[in-house]
Simulated assay, not measured.
Amino acid sequence: MRQFTDSEALSGIVPEALGAGVRVVRVDRLRGGSKKGVYRVHTSGSRAASVIVYSWAEAEDFWPAAEAIDPAHPFAHASGLAPFLAAQRRLDGLGVRVPGVLLADDSRRRYPADVAVVEDIAGGTLEALLETDPARASHALNELAAMLDLMHQQHSQHYGRVDVLERGDKASGDSCEQLVLERAVEDLAEAAERDPGIGSAAAPLHVRLEELATRVAPRTQHGLIHGELGPDHVLVDASGHPVLIDIEGLMFFDVEWEHVFLRLRFGDRYPALSRPGLDPARLDLYMLAMRLSLVAGPLRLLDGDFPHRTVMREIAEHNAKEALALLVQ
């Protein structure tokens, strides 16, 4: 049985962030996280009625232990205080809105895990706003597009997560497209064992991946991407401005990888985020790779005790169908 945090555990760390007179009155564990715990902490005695606490405790990570992988690999498990802080500094320095950090602590003296106390953006997600207030959401979506333009125009000859590059390490692999191909082949093998439809088409899917990879020309410049940017990873503040969250995977990589994910997650609203000049060969390879990742990943998560099982199963089933559909295009 997993043990999550509570008011008592947070009664030391939150007053440290907000002041000695602050008292924790209620703690709500927010739904959705699979790598870290996210808590809304309601307080008294502070100008901030609530704050958000990120907890990177082992019990908060629902992903099954994977085989050893180079932690500098762009697709390594992106979780932890160090990648969060590196991403927060980089985006804040660019003027891209992210929650402000009130306290970050990896000492484990006041709390039994790496932890961060951050600003509570109380306006809800862009995903919810798109349904409840499309006009207001449209303004936020246009501002998000401008934020992404700014990020994608930040260039580096090296690819890799921001925290990896900041500490002077080199990311694994020879190129973005090679890394994506290798990951897609692994995801295909894993998905083929678990999904009958993918299993029956494993050979032609493998051939298709290799064929698409041969069409991709070399590239020496990479943009700054979020890496997993759906409308649920964008909050909207009280003034209607978008705020990026779940930023630990921030990295320099092919911007086509970002755009494929944006297209899948924003659906009919993606045209507001689409941009000219994207490489069609990369888009084709990355779309099939992303579909396979969204089959293998959710099924892997279901090997453990992740609580929201129906939605993960639906994601895997939907993307298996979409991956198979790409064979006939």
Rank of each mutant, 00 (worst) to 15 (best):
L91P: 06
A171F: 02
V24H: 03
A128G: 13
F266L: 06
P218T: 08
L326M: 13
A128K: 14
R110I: 08
E8C: 01
L302I: 07
P196K: 01
A17C: 11
D268V: 14
C176D: 11
V24C: 07
G267I: 02
T43N: 01
M312R: 15
A146H: 07
L299F: 01
D254L: 01
V98T: 15
V295E: 12
G12F: 08
V180Y: 01
S156D: 14
T214I: 01
G199N: 12
P74F: 05
F306M: 00
R309I: 05
D187C: 14
A189I: 03
L94H: 00
H42R: 13
A65F: 00
R23T: 14
R90P: 00
G45M: 09
S156I: 04
G199Y: 12
A66L: 12
L299M: 12
R29W: 05
V51D: 08
A20L: 11
L85W: 04
P271I: 05
L244S: 05
A323F: 10
F253C: 11
A316V: 09
D268N: 10
G123T: 03
V96M: 06
Q221D: 14
E8A: 13
P83G: 07
A128I: 01
S55G: 14
G160W: 09
P276Y: 04
H233Q: 15
N319V: 04
V185C: 12
K36E: 10
P280H: 04
R183Q: 15
S239K: 13
R282G: 02
I247F: 02
V118W: 00
T43P: 00
L81C: 09
D303Q: 15
E16G: 07
L85G: 08
I245Y: 05
G160A: 11
S46M: 08
R110W: 10
P231Y: 02
V255T: 15
C176N: 13
Q153A: 15
V53L: 09
H42G: 01
H152P: 00
L292W: 10
P64A: 07
V328K: 14
I69K: 13
A289V: 05
L244W: 00
D279H: 04
H73N: 15
S46L: 10
D195Q: 14
A9E: 13
N319Q: 14
L81V: 10
P307C: 03
E228F: 07
Q153C: 10
L327P: 01
A86Q: 05
S11M: 09
E60N: 11
H222V: 01
W63P: 01
H233M: 05
L205S: 01
A113I: 05
R167H: 10
P242V: 08
A17R: 12
A289E: 06
S293Y: 12
A113T: 04
I245S: 02
P83Q: 08
G37Q: 07
G37V: 06
P64S: 07
Y54E: 06
A145V: 02
E67N: 02
L148E: 06
G249Y: 06
T5R: 10
S50Q: 09
A104V: 03
R31D: 13
D187H: 15
G267A: 02
A325N: 12
L224T: 05
H259Q: 03
F75H: 10
L283N: 07
P276R: 07
L224Q: 04
F84D: 04
E60R: 11
F252I: 05
E228K: 09
L212D: 02
